[in-house]
Amino acid sequence: MGLRLRAATVRGPGHIADGLPNQDAVLIRHGRRDWLAVVADGMGSRRQAALGARAACTAVRRAVREQSFDSDDHTLIRAVYSHWLDHLAQRRVLPADAVTTCLFAWGLPDGRFRLLQLGDGLILGHPEPVHGLVQRPGGVFSNETTGLGLSRRYADWHGRRGRLDRRGDGLLLMSDGLSEDLVRTDGLVLAVIASLRGRGARSARAALGRELHAWPTPGHSDDKSLAVIYRT
């Protein structure tokens, strides 16, 4: 039984019109020891949002490299945050200028995984109970979120552990450019996996990118990112 990781990120129409870079970042890594998928969404109002999002991907990659898979959430969160701050400090960027959300899935070849999310976006899984793991925190409106550089509380993070056991089991990690405009989520994981079946990494990225570029919600302007992990 194998595992596939696929991802795509596209610049939103708003950023294209304003000549701004993609302020989302995605990272997927599939090694012999473990696998990792990260989605980060830099807060558009901050000057170094794009850098902050890329730094989040790097920080998570470094954190999982040095941490045991069995480490507790607090230890892992602290490691991610420390690496993110170090990355910014080396570039003399203030954390407040690079605020970013951070969602990641870290797993082992046997299918076990752990999830962590700070800020907007959505992690979905098939089968449940991972389904709809992290909803938007209550009390906010569109484009208002917390993230690295803002949050100082472990409680702002949402974590879960689970297992991808069977063929077709999967996870989706997405930025709020997608999650805020979903009319429903039931069946989405399976639909995405089905659309990627039989495609290689490059073909899958291109196919996902086309879907994200052609997003049909009127007025959508955000960058959009999606990472997919599924059993084959």
């Binding site: 805020e180 979903l182 009319v183 429903r184 639909a191 996902l208 879907e211 052609a214 049909p216 009127p218």
Partner: peptide, 13 residues
């Protein structure tokens, strides 16, 4: 079924 079939068809209020 495509991903876009899960998308809202109205702009954000």
């Amino acid at each position: 079924m495509a991903i876009k079939d899960f998308a809202m068809t109205t702009a954000r209020p």
